[in-house]
Each structure stands twice: as structure tokens, then as C-alpha cells.
Design a protein around this nucleic acid. Structure first.
Lengths: 337, 337
DNA sequence: TTGAAAGCGCTACCAT
DNA sequence: ATGGTAGCGCTTTCAA
């Protein structure tokens, strides 16, 4: 707040005009061949006075604010999606942009008023992000703005979008087991339909890869994507005589439940049962044995979204699919017999 | 970007002047007794034209931007601290403020240039947050700005700060065990010194409460605050004949390692050993049995920080200590014998 | 009860 | 090679 130094002050101190000072300070001095001597005086004055251009004034003139709105339903609340935000912040920072990070909690009215506020502030662009990979209906106002969807798709595919390559991830999960020799008694745990895109596409990829290898899923244990239901349902499955050689869990939380159910029954991982999963949350590396998981590349996705915004993404084929890295750990071994 | 409606446009449409329109739209029409008829025309015009005040222009005049900078070392990266950010965003939103969320990664140069940029944008206030509760050296520039420290303390206690009440949390953890009848063979797991404040204060609270009950810690198993080292060290402790009645883990990740070590040796929780911990991360509720944990109230802390900013926090005694809620779950039972 | 006009700090066009 | 000046859209003082 003791930062009241204006361009005029710098010009005065350098005994020149606002215009000249401006040209020097914005690096337009080359083509305008400003005297080296003048240039120096301006630069010295700016440094001495600790001049900081007022970005509001600049924005008012130029209509650019070097700020981006990051709007999410509830990205943040779920801890593991935090990297969508931080990846975006970091990528934007590299271009000199700052992010207004906002959460709507999924409330359309709040969303509308938020976008109104952001428009009032003349943010340069919008990242519209979702916690779960899914199809969204973006607010009409955003159609008129530079917008990119992160971890979600517009129903009409009208805006550039960045999503993880879930289908390939499904294939990779299956291949991780196939590579170790698994062919039979491969079970899927989790509701394939729950998270519209992730569930359906992971499952699809899994089926494709298995089919390519001349085999198929032995079956599915249906349950919500949480440890408790996975523990219950998968435990019941085992108690009913279920004897899987390998298990593909639709996410790490499900895998935790599966681990617990297996251990409670004295079955060893990976000696008796191999386990592979999706998301690669912190949990995966902490489990015993460490869990093999196909990672959600949230940071890369966010970086890609910012890149699209910066390069006027129109050029790219969209949606952009970001590869999900395979993190192989000790939860996968050769089949028992 | 089709949002080029100015106050002048509204005034024209309402057949009045910018000034009058301004008074009406900013609700200053009461004391200035503007004709009801005029008032209506202005309001109608604004609605019809979908007028949105330009916050840059407004800010340029008034020097207030209704935006707050949230600066953190690396708050975000660690998933579980995300609520420091989202709590702040939500609390600020209630006051009509938006947050520029920034991360410095702990790099002082980056931090300095970031603060420069934020100053250029004339943010109204700063939240300086840390992932771990610790003492920080805030950049000199912030001394001249409205600033509040979140989850950290200034060495000279110069700025208002909000931190969790770790000492009371320590007492509460010990009491959770004392209440169930534990008196002897209560062990502490984790390095008490590691996280300057949290480790030291939690331990201090624990010792106080035990001392008040006429007992004391049986000893400490020293290890980093992660599952793996906790598993190793605590496992070695058990193998050396360690026979704890109850274990206090300095955080949930340590508790995970302790759970794993106990289970690997066939000791049951809470029948053989009671466990209590700190942080109440997602993990706590997922473990079997669910883990009792003293929660880090990140959202409340953030809300409190914003409140201090809004009320010119000078009034409050600082640092402000926010209570850490006790989440009792099935990991605590009566002592064995 | 309403309106004119100055000015926030910057950019960019037009002179010189 | 340098400087004057007109706004960007808003707030606010002063005058009518």
C-alpha cells in the first residue's frame, strides 16, 4: 500500500515524458530507437522508485488482465484431484498468468453469479474443471469466452477439452496382468457404470485387451467405488467360493477394500491373487504390498489445458486425451498354478 | 467478450445521466432521494442491457479489487491440505471476494516476484499459508500489506496468524485413551521433533494429560511420519518384545504403518492394542478398524483467517488457535488386562 | 433531484 | 527521437 509510484513519477525522475518512459519500460525501445542515454535514465528511475505498473489501469486500456478463471464443481474438496488445480496454477504461472480459483459446489445459480463476477473482472480465459471425468453442460455465457474443459466433455463437443485416456488405461491394466501370464479367473471389482466416462471406458479397454489376448473377464463384483462396499461385496464373493487369479479394481479405494477382504481371509497378494487398480493415489504406494495402479495424470492434463488456452487451442483435435501412466508395483505376480 | 455495456449505455437508455444511474445501481439512491420513476428506468435499462460494472475501472478509481492473494509454499501439492485453500475460497466468496491462488514451492525468488505481481494487481489482502504448521519468515513486502498467516507463525509474531490447537489435541488424544482406562504401556510413535510445531506441541499435550492422570508415556518409537518407516520401526519394536497397551501415532500415515505392523503379527486392534492418531485424513475412516484421530480443522482455520482479514483482525489476540475435533472410532478399546 | 466534469494510471495515436 | 493528448469505465465532487 505504499506503492503509489506511477509511470509519470518515473518519467519525471528521468526528466522525460510518460510516453518515452513507457516505450522503454515495455521494451519497445528498439524499433523506436530511443537514445541509449534516455533509456538508461528511465531504467534507473524505475528501479530506484521501485516502479510497478498498475495492472488495473493497464487492463482497463488493453482489455487483458493476465488472469484466468479456474471454475470447478468440487474439484478441490476431493483431495486427490488437487493436482488439477495446482497443475493449472503452475502452468499458468509460467506464462505470467494468475488464477482465480473458484468452486461452485455444483450449484448452477452460484455458478452463474460467479461467472458474472469473473466477467466483470475481465478474466482472459476460463478453465472449467470437473472432479470426475464426465459430460457437462457448460453455462451459456462461457460459449462466448475463451474456455477449455478440464476432465470433462461438453455434450456437443463445442469447446476444447482435456481428458485422461481411460480406454488405453483399461487396456494397460489388463496387459499388466496378461504380461505376467494371467489368462483365466480375472475379475473386475467396482460398478462399471458409476462414473460415466471413467467406469465405462476403463471397462471397455479392459475387455478389448483381454479379448485381443483370446480371453475375457471371469466376471464382475459390483460395488460402489469405496473401501467399505468393496470390502463387503468382494468379501462376500470370496466367501461364496470366489477364487480369482487376478483382480482389476476400478480405483484405489476399491483396491483397499479388496486388500482388506483378501487379508482377512489369509489370501496373499500377489502370491494367491494379483491386484491392479486405477488412479494411483497416495494410498497405492502405502499399501502392502504396494499397489500397481494406472495413474490419473492430473498435472499433465491441467498443463495441457493451459497450453490450449495459450495457443488458441482451436488447432488441436479435441478432446485431447492424456496418457495415464502405468505404475507397476509388487501387487502383481504370476498366476498361482 | 460481448460484454461491452457501460454505465453510460445504461444512463442513455434510461434517459438520464451516468451519475444518476450510478447512484441508483450502487444503492445510494435512498439518501439521495432520486425520483422513483427515474430509479425504475435505470434499473430496467440495466437489466435489459445486462449491465455488468467493469471491476477494473472501478478498482482503478477506488483502489479496491475485492480479490485476495492466497500464497502457499506447497500447500496444495500435499493432498490433505487442500481444505486450507478451499476453505479460504469458500469463506472469501461469502464476502464477495475472489482468490488468486499461488504456490511458491518454497522458492524465495519466485515468492518475491509473485508478490510483486500481486501488488501490481492491487489485491486487497494476503493469506500466507503453509502446508505444515511452522514458523515462517514472511517477505518484507507483506509487512506493509493486510496479511494473515494461515497454519504458520511469524517469528516476531508481527502478523495475525491462525493455527490449530495442537497442544490441546495432544491432551485430547491422551484423554481418549485415559477415558477408556489405559494407564500403562502407552507408547508414542513418530519423531516428536520433525514438524516443528505439530510434533512438539502434540507431544507436549500428551505428556501433560498423562501427567495430570498420574502416569506417563512408556516410551517413544522414533520414526519419520510415513507408513513405511513406521511399519519398520514399530515392527522392530514389537519384535524386540514391545508390548504396548495403547499407541499414539503422530499422524495417520504413521498409524497406517502401525496397523500393518500389528496385523502382520496377529495383534488385534483394539482388543490387544488401542490406537489413536492425528490429522483425520480420509485414510482414518477407511482403515479397519476405523481409526480414532484428532482432526486438522483446515476449513475452519481458513474461514477464521478470512474473517480476520475482513474484520481488520487487529482486534483479536493472536495467534488464533482453532480447536482440533476429536473423531472417536473403533480403534480404541479398554486395556487388555 | 440531476448532471458535468475531473481524474484513477496506463496505452497508443499523432505531432513535432 | 520525444512528447502531447485522448480515452478505457468508473466514482465523486461540485454546481445547477
Amino acid at each position: 500500500m505504499r506503492d503509489r509510484v506511477t509511470l509519470q513519477d518515473v518519467a519525471d525522475q528521468a526528466r522525460t515524458s510518460k510516453t518515452t518512459a513507457h516505450y522503454v519500460l515495455t521494451g519497445q525501445d528498439q524499433k523506436l530507437r530511443i537514445a541509449e542515454e534516455t533509456r538508461r535514465r528511465v531504467l534507473r528511475a524505475a528501479t530506484e522508485l521501485r516502479y510497478r505498473p498498475n495492472l488495473m489501469a493497464k487492463g482497463l486500456r488493453t482489455q487483458v488482465t493476465r488472469s484466468i478463471a479456474f471454475i470447478s464443481d468440487t474439484v478441490a474438496t476431493e483431495a486427490y484431484a488437487g493436482n488439477l488445480v495446482y497443475g493449472a496454477i503452475a502452468a499458468a504461472a509460467e506464462h505470467g498468468y494468475l488464477l482465480f480459483v473458484c468452486e461452485t459446489g455444483g450449484d448452477p445459480e452460484l455458478e452463474a453469479s460467479l461467472i458474472g463476477d469473473l466477467a466483470s473482472r475481465h478474466v482472459d480465459a476460463y478453465v472449467y474443471a470437473s472432479l470426475f471425468t464426465r459430460e457437462v453442460q457448460i453455462p451459456a455465457e462461457l460459449h462466448f469466452e475463451r474456455t477449455v474443459l478440464l476432465n470433462c466433455l461438453a455434450a456437443d463437443n463445442s469447446s476444447p477439452a482435456v481428458i485422461p485416456d481411460e480406454r488405453q488405461a483399461g487396456r494397460d491394466a489388463a496387459c499388466a496382468l496378461l504380461d505376467r501370464g494371467h489368462r483365466r479367473a480375472i475379475w473386475l471389482v467396482g460398478e462399471p457404470g458409476e462414473q460415466v466416462l471413467a467406469g465405462a471406458q476403463r471397462t471397455e479397454g479392459i475387455r478389448q485387451a483381454l479379448s485381443d489376448a483370446g480371453t475375457e473377464l471371469a466376471g464382475t463384483v459390483d460395488c460402489k467405488w469405496w473401501p467399505e462396499p468393496a470390502y463387503e461385496q468382494f468379501g462376500a464373493f470370496l466367501d461364496d467360493g470366489g477364487d480369482p487369479s487376478a483382480v482389476i479394481c476400478l480405483n484405489d479405494r476399491v483396491a483397499l477394500g479388496v486388500y482388506q477382504a483378501l487379508k482377512a481371509r489369509g489370501r496373499s497378494i500377489p502370491t494367491d491373487v494379483s491386484v491392479v487398480s486405477f488412479d494411483d493415489s497416495d494410498l497405492a504406494a502405502w499399501l502392502q504390498p504396494p499397489l500397481s495402479s494406472i495413474a490419473l495424470p492430473h498435472r499433465q492434463m491441467a498443463a495441457e489445458a493451459i497450453r490450449l488456452l495459450m495457443t488458441d487451442g482451436a488447432l488441436a483435435e479435441h478432446p485431447v486425451h492424456v496418457a495415464m501412466p502405468v505404475r507397476l508395483r509388487e501387487s502383481i505376480g504370476p498366476p498361482r498354478s
